[in-house]
Amino acid sequence: MLLSNGGWSWGQRPGGGPAPDPAGVTFVAHGETVDDATPNYTGLNFGAAAADRVMLALEAYSSTSSGSSDFNGTTIGGVSATEITEAASSGSVNMGMHAASVPTGTSGDIDIGVSSAGGTTDTALSLLRMKGFSATPYAVNQGLTGGTSISRTIDCPAGGVIVAGVYTDGTTGITWTNVDELDDFLYNSGQRGLSSAARVYATAQTGLSITAAKTGGGSAVSLYLVVASFAPL
């Protein structure tokens, strides 16, 4: 059906076929867990199924563990996820990116495995749907700092996509440079934040600087950044 605004209803196009599902990265869900050493997210939106769909989990956690903690055993929709990269301190705060090819289903669960989780663990998750790109990263980078911004460089092939995520402690959002924000939310009663971003590049990029900056500047905080690029299929 042609609508008055010129669009088509029911996700259809002329001829009755499905609406196009182009290559790209989109935000589909986010959430948080509090005081849970075995964090689990149930019934999250995965977006439309597709043979080349990759689910990307941008995950942050903080725990009361006195030693170093680490992500392990993350699953997305029952599929064992691959760790793409992780920004980890010697303490108990980590930011990670995990990926899994999940071609079927429009929703599912995500289990985040954390070693040395300690008695209480707060986590946050930004879930992205990636289509038309390899599940294996072309390049990765990560880092952490205390301050009001963090930058890391990365290469990206022509037609590829750059995906980034950042954890911050503090009560303001994030402003990105050279990627476009997809999700930005505060959790743990507004004491921490998680943001994700992505951008497709038509031409190859070498040493491109990706920056996440605390909105409005202000006092220094801890920032944990992960960034990866993926080649087109």
Rank of each mutant, 00 (worst) to 15 (best):
T33W: 06
T215R: 08
A51R: 11
G16W: 02
I154T: 03
T206M: 02
S149N: 14
L186T: 04
M95H: 02
Y167R: 03
Q205G: 07
D155C: 08
G159A: 13
A87S: 15
T121R: 06
T82M: 15
V93G: 04
L186N: 03
P157M: 13
T38I: 11
A57Q: 03
Y41H: 12
D184A: 03
Y224C: 12
G47P: 08
G108Y: 01
S9Y: 08
L208N: 00
S115W: 07
D184H: 01
A213S: 12
A51L: 12
G78V: 00
T26Y: 14
A51N: 10
M1Y: 07
M97Y: 04
K131Y: 08
T171M: 11
T74P: 08
L58G: 01
W8F: 15
D184Y: 00
T206Y: 00
P137A: 13
F46A: 02
L2P: 02
A124C: 13
A228K: 02
M130C: 08
E59P: 06
G47V: 04
N188H: 05
W8K: 14
A81R: 01
G207Y: 01
N141P: 05
T26P: 01
I112G: 02
P137W: 05
A204L: 12
A49Q: 06
S134K: 07
S90P: 05
F27W: 08
D109A: 15
M55G: 00
G31I: 13
R192W: 03
A197Y: 00
A212M: 02
S63T: 14
S116E: 04
V114A: 06
G146S: 15
V163G: 08
E83L: 13
A60I: 03
S222P: 03
D21E: 12
S101R: 14
D36K: 08
S149F: 08
L128W: 07
D183P: 05
D155E: 09
S151D: 11
D52C: 10
Y41A: 05
F230C: 03
G96D: 09
T153S: 15
V163M: 07
E59F: 01
Y61H: 11
A198G: 07
G218Y: 07
G16E: 06
T206R: 05
N5D: 15
T123L: 12
G165K: 02
G7C: 09
G6Y: 11
T74Q: 12
T121G: 09
G31N: 04
A49L: 11
T121P: 04
P137Q: 12
S126T: 03
D183I: 13
Q12Y: 11
T175R: 07
D109G: 14
I162W: 00
A231V: 02
S107E: 07
I110S: 05
R192M: 04
G119C: 10
T64D: 15
A231Y: 12
A99S: 13
G173S: 10
F46P: 00
L2K: 09
G16S: 15
Q142T: 00
A19N: 05
M95L: 08
A139M: 10
A204F: 05
A19T: 01
G78R: 04
A135L: 11
I76A: 06
D109R: 08
G78W: 02
G217E: 10
G24L: 10
V163I: 15
C156L: 14
G11R: 14
N188R: 10
S149G: 11
G143T: 09
L56P: 02
